[in-house]
Simulated scan of single mutants.
Amino acid sequence: MTTPAPDPKPAPTSQPAVPGPPTKHQLALMIWLAVFPTLTVLNLALGHWLGTLTPVVRTFVLATIAVPIVIYGLMPQLHRLRRRLLTRHNH
């Protein structure tokens, strides 16, 4: 009895290629897309109250609120969106 010859083609992988990290320019755009709207909304929502503060204190308050929103809320979403767009583009 003979055994069948092995199939010369490798089995296709079911996992799509995962894109690498964003380039410096992509990351800069992603950060801008997260920071600008966040600061705009915060300024519109808190503008009257922020106007009573000194510029340094106003900047400190804005940064204290905006940084966690951008880092923990918006950047993960933008990374997912970028990954989805690049993965869809490659297929």
Rank of each mutant, 00 (worst) to 15 (best):
Met1Cys: 01
Thr3Gln: 08
Pro4Cys: 11
Pro4Gln: 12
Ala5Met: 06
Ala5Asp: 09
Asp7Leu: 06
Pro8Arg: 07
Pro12Gly: 11
Thr13Asp: 15
Ser14His: 07
Gln15Met: 10
Pro16Trp: 12
Val18Ser: 04
Val18Tyr: 03
Pro21Trp: 07
Thr23Ala: 03
His25Phe: 14
Ala28Ser: 12
Leu29Arg: 14
Leu29Tyr: 11
Met30Trp: 11
Ile31Phe: 12
Ile31Glu: 13
Leu33Pro: 00
Ala34Asp: 08
Ala34Cys: 13
Val35Asn: 00
Phe36Val: 08
Thr38Glu: 09
Leu39Gly: 00
Thr40Glu: 04
Thr40Asn: 02
Thr40Phe: 10
Val41Ile: 15
Leu42Gln: 04
Leu42Tyr: 03
Leu42Pro: 00
Asn43Thr: 02
Leu44Ile: 06
Gly47Lys: 02
Gly47Trp: 08
Gly47Leu: 05
Gly47Thr: 07
Trp49Tyr: 11
Gly51Pro: 03
Thr52His: 05
Thr52Gly: 05
Leu53Phe: 13
Thr54Met: 11
Pro55Leu: 06
Val56Pro: 01
Val56Tyr: 11
Val56Asn: 05
Val56Thr: 10
Val57His: 06
Val57Tyr: 14
Thr59Phe: 08
Phe60Trp: 09
Phe60Gly: 12
Val61Tyr: 14
Val61Lys: 12
Leu62Gly: 08
Thr64Met: 15
Thr64Asp: 07
Ile65His: 03
Ile65Glu: 03
Ala66Asn: 02
Ala66Gln: 02
Val67Ala: 15
Ile69Gly: 00
Val70Leu: 05
Ile71Leu: 06
Tyr72Gly: 03
Gly73Ser: 13
Gly73Pro: 11
Pro76Ser: 11
Gln77Val: 10
Gln77Cys: 05
Gln77Ile: 08
His79Ile: 09
His79Ser: 01
His79Asp: 03
Arg80Glu: 07
Arg80Ala: 07
Leu81Gly: 04
Leu81Asn: 03
Arg82Asp: 08
Arg83Gly: 00
Leu86Ala: 04
Leu86Gln: 09
Leu86Lys: 03
Thr87Glu: 14
Arg88Ser: 14
Arg88Gln: 10
Arg88Pro: 01
His89Cys: 10
Asn90Val: 01
His91Phe: 10
